[in-house]
Design a protein around this nucleic acid. Sequence first.
RNA 1: GGCCGGAUGGCGAAGUGGUAACGCAGCGGUCUGCAAAACCGCGAUGCGCGGGUUCAAAUCCCGCUCCGGCCUCCA
Length: 377
Amino acid sequence: MKLYNTLTRTKEEFTPLDPQNIRLYVCGVTPYDDPHLGNARPMVVFDVLFRLLRHTYGESAVKYARNFTDIDDKIIARANELGEDPATLAERFIHSYHDDAAALGCLPPTYEPRVSETQVMEGIITFIEKLLKKGSAYEIPGDGIYLDITQIDGNDGYQYGKLSGNKLEDLVAGARVEANTAKRNSGDFALWKLAKPGEPQWKTPWGAGRPGWHIECSVMSEQLLGDKFDLHGGGEDLQFPHHENEIAQSVACHGHIHANVWLHNAFITVGGKRMGKSMGNFTTIKDALEKYSPEAIRLWLLQTHYRKPVDYSDEALIAAENRLKKLLPKALAVTNPAPMPQGFLDALKDDLNTPKALGKMGSIEETATCLRFLGLL
RNA sequence: GGCCGGAUGGCGAAGUGGUAACGCAGCGGUCUGCAAAACCGCGAUGCGCGGGUUCAAAUCCCGCUCCGGCCUCCA
């Protein structure tokens, strides 16, 4: 199986650390609103990868973790806005996420950790203590604990900026927006934020507060999959700063990058422009489901390679709907499904080339099997 | 400004050296009282533009145009 690794910018042959124990970690969401179609893409793409890995290495050999960042500035802000308890609000949108993922035919991950879990929070505190002890992290009194991105030397020679294609010098020197002059480098980021009155908080040796944005993924992945695992995925937007910072923490803590292969899906666009929360041009999965069948949405997403943008339009969704309208009744009527054609499987194993695979489903007996495999039947 | 992608028939989308998968729409046919559905068939002499390399290029090289993304909120 080949996969494109953002870390090396090349398509590589995937070699598991342990074929009996394949480990995949995908960044989920911060549950402060209903998930939109941009969130649906990694849901579906990595679900197909999960299915492919299970098919290749055996169902019990694959572990898939997808987190919820249920403690975050955006959640607190939204909760204040609505006069709702932050934890209740997060819980509500986690349910919403689960509903949508299930509707879109995604298998439940093996693990779905949350930052607010006691074990995770304790892990975060321990992790930060280690970084402080090592001198990779420092305190800004009255503010929080920060990671010094120039102090992360690991034995694998990782340089901050490699994943996202940035140069450390540029990031250290190029203070674009310098909100916090107490930081040693402009690229330094918060591991822990000291609480302001009324905010959710946890006690630590350096003061009560809550975790920064990136730390949770380093800790949860380590707790569930170990400090070295196979695959780490997420949306393209997470490449920087989230994944870059996650790597920085883990390298600083463990001396090596925590995941071998870094996978990033491209964006959903609308009229060629990125669909995003801050653009205000997003469509929630629930709204899309009012207009189109879940299978059509799933097929629409899989009709384009995951590293290329997909444009959301009525035309595209209707085309997917029409294809299924013709295909599904025939596929459902198949009583003697045939094995998946090799060409179908080969396409999927070539960096998850779902559009190519969809063109190689073969006879209707084979197609039924393929559709079922893809979660479309 | 720095870095990274993309441009393939009406639309979407594979294909990264050997002569353009697949899907949607369209068109023709079979069937039907007509239509729909279903089934069968057709469709780019050409892959943003200009050069170059090669026996051979959508695929490699050089230059150009346009579009998008990231540069510390976003899957």
